[in-house]
Design a protein around this nucleic acid. Sequence first.
DNA 1: AATTCTGTTGCTATTATAGCACCATGTTGG
DNA 2: CCAACATGGTGCTATAATAGCAACAGAATT
Lengths: 243, 243
Amino acid sequence: MLPAQPNQSLIDGVRCLQAVATAGVPIGGRELARRLEMEPTRANRLLKTLAAQGFLHQDGDRKYQPGAGMHVLAAQSLHGSGMLQRALPVLARLRRRRPALIVALGVLWHDQVSYLYHADPQTPPHQAIGRLGAYPASISSIGMALLATRDDAEIRDLYRGRIIPGHPEGLGSLMGAIRTARRRGFAHVVESENPPHSTLAVTVGVPAEAAIAFAGHSLFPDAETLAVLLRQASLEITPPTTG
Amino acid sequence: MLPAQPNQSLIDGVRCLQAVATAGVPIGGRELARRLEMEPTRANRLLKTLAAQGFLHQDGDRKYQPGAGMHVLAAQSLHGSGMLQRALPVLARLRRRRPALIVALGVLWHDQVSYLYHADPQTPPHQAIGRLGAYPASISSIGMALLATRDDAEIRDLYRGRIIPGHPEGLGSLMGAIRTARRRGFAHVVESENPPHSTLAVTVGVPAEAAIAFAGHSLFPDAETLAVLLRQASLEITPPTTG
DNA sequence: AATTCTGTTGCTATTATAGCACCATGTTGG
DNA sequence: CCAACATGGTGCTATAATAGCAACAGAATT
């Protein structure tokens, strides 16, 4: 997957971009260098390069925050991959069909899930986008549904030697859950037994590029029914020209 | 603005990222290299580096398109800078107040405007985000309102020696329009006289990080009234802690 | 005033990248 | 069917760009 000559500057540069975006508050260069375990001079130069291009903005205290270029990139990528555009009407219909449940659309990135759409019953539809940050994949049904599409080896590499959220017993427990998800064609994650609260997700696209989910109380009885609903929705979202 | 040692790999890398996002369709490495006037090997390695990090995805034809990492970055940046979150309810109210008009929120990046929110009367509110790509700043009221906050020298550098959309007479004409916008405190761009259609924008934030606009028929008679409405909205969107 | 942060730059050894030449594969068209 | 020409990708080494120490100025803290 990595090219013969991967570009380390680019890798660390986008790590900086990412870190500023996730920080939530303006953050200084040295502080950021510590978080990413980078040499401060290097971080400083990458950050200032990004700032000069307009992807970051330095406020009065010279701290960094997302800049206009980043917003442009965000809008263009959401617009460019028509996925969200195709998904939104379908997701709105899912909400009308099951008004008591949370409806969400998310993508997997490394071991984290990010929600492009996350609407609980009280949320006005126009506030459902970009509402949440990142979330551990292993305790999210969207994450589990997407992990299930990956090779066992890849999953093992991702979690080897680390504590796995939701699976304190270790990798074996996670792989068991993954196999169950593969067999059933959907992921069902129980967040709590009492009160009963769980999440259920199926993937979207071939190969899977995202997943859609229901979340709420008592999904146990009609998991299959909900999975069928989600699978229908998934097919509608999948682009006619397979990419 | 540029650091003592700007990182060229990072600059070209994000240019690639940007180019793939704006392409709209999957695009090959060599094609992209031509568009950016880059050496193909270089483009290839930058693209594959981005793909390995999950920011781009290579489809079956090895063409590149936005990947999960880019969506994560998009969601996090929209979420991270709380601007859109604060803006959405205010924009919804503006739509209710003036149901016949288009309501938009956009940011300026170089000489282009990108809309984070663009809702015409027929658009369901949840489809108003990420709906449009980039647009020339000089023929957009949002672009003009934001350009007006920049130094004259900066604007001149941006457009020197280029054809300026909407101002075929050249830089002098643009600077005149900029001065008018500064004097009045809002930008008013007339797109056509017959049928009458124009756009009106004010900036958001100090320093200006975005602008909000009305667009529609016959904005001429009550430009001042609409500007007042937008200014009130702008103040509500501006974060309590000035950044 | 002294201390310790911070952001930033200058400098040069060192390292990572540039880009040619090349290969494998796929597509077009005679 | 087989040129002819695309394409994505890699190996190699000169070369140019980066790494990171040392240093400086300014803020904040003590």
